[in-house]
Design a protein around this nucleic acid. Sequence first.
DNA 1: AGGCCTGCTTGATCTTCATCAATCGTCGGA
DNA 2: TCCGACGATTGATGAAGATCAAGCAGGCCT
Lengths: 237, 237
Amino acid sequence: MKLPESESSVRPAERPEIATLPLFRDMGEAERNRIFSGSFLQVFPPQLTLFELGQRADFLHVLVDGLAELYAHSAGRDTTMRIVEPVTSFILAAVVTDMPYLMSARTLTSSRVLLVPAALVREVIKQDTALMQATMHELALGYRDVVRALTDMKLRQSAERLGNLILQQERRQGSTGRVQLRAEKRVLASLLGMTPENLSRAFGVLGSHGLVVDGSQVRVVDRSALEAFSRPDPVRE
Amino acid sequence: MKLPESESSVRPAERPEIATLPLFRDMGEAERNRIFSGSFLQVFPPQLTLFELGQRADFLHVLVDGLAELYAHSAGRDTTMRIVEPVTSFILAAVVTDMPYLMSARTLTSSRVLLVPAALVREVIKQDTALMQATMHELALGYRDVVRALTDMKLRQSAERLGNLILQQERRQGSTGRVQLRAEKRVLASLLGMTPENLSRAFGVLGSHGLVVDGSQVRVVDRSALEAFSRPDPVRE
DNA sequence: AGGCCTGCTTGATCTTCATCAATCGTCGGA
DNA sequence: TCCGACGATTGATGAAGATCAAGCAGGCCT
């Protein structure tokens, strides 16, 4: 029996990269295999909706390759809540609580996603303490991320938020001074809680504070100037 | 030896109310006693700072009585992140991750707070699976709360946010149509991400949408009108 | 190569909310 | 009882950002 291209169980070659995720790293070998063999890896085209807000969480998702967006809608508007880069799991909280998704998800580019049945996750968590602990930790870190995003939203204005996002990305991409924007600018704008028009203007403002923008390539030419302007959160950890 | 009034280990009479918290409810009796005997209950006067953002998390806090505020500051401004009502634990995420607080806390009224040493929490979590599971669950629920707050902030305007908060409180206070605002209005304003002036005006707006305000007493006289205006999140669970 | 589509940018105007300023009302103390 | 302080309210003005409306540039199709 052959599975279609777009759907297959996890190939052994791909396991290491998923298995080294903080979430799955410390758990027992047998339990990890149980998780993997009950899951499947699927390829999705760009702009495809993976799930919708309000649905009962059926799968824990792990983005293996590509790019995805989590977004919420309410009151007739949309806003992107998170841009997911590989290799990362997402919507863990909905899976753990067995509650409806608070966000919708779609692929931005063609993506490979590991789908782990939510019930399986919950079951194995109960049996494997290491997985439970990792889940707990992951949720705590995620909580802190959202808290930071909320304070950002409440306390900073738009150009400052952009500056901080650039500084954060620059660090994550290896502190080379170069930042590659992986999502479209309008997605970025929505993530930062502004319109594409104002993102453009915000980039303009940062031009006088140590930033050079060329399409989706950004260079931090004067980090201290950018930091002085953006006043990054002192609590970085 | 007699402990000062303001500081004592947990009196047996007070244990039940804390022990029935979701966080501590399911754990083993012995472990719970370990937690309690290593903790102490302290009384704080109003407006006292319990801890400051950036400090390493030293205690898990449980508000037993009174009212507390979690707030963040950045870029020279303040914003309240959460109003804590008894009986609730707070800053669990910082304790679990052993990282610095992302928020500061102060009492709003005179309060009794149970202080559980963070290291003790982390230690017992490792030994008691039920506590770990409860912690995981609590974090997941907290995560969802913050996500909701963030979408609210990004998608709704101020009067709408207020309307939703009133509706939520009304439900929590027993769906009697009466809501008692427990914090000062300026704290409420900050929680909702607006100024006291605009909170006043927002209450004014809601006056035409089924709400009657009298000081800190609020009555929802026409729930469907208020809901039509505030468009509450359909995902309530 | 031409042409079109799409995303980004730029400018002008409008909305929402913050700020500034003054007043009111309540509570507590002298 | 009066006074002072503080929180809440109301009005007037200002700033940040959204919306509306064109342009612009690169990619892609024919």
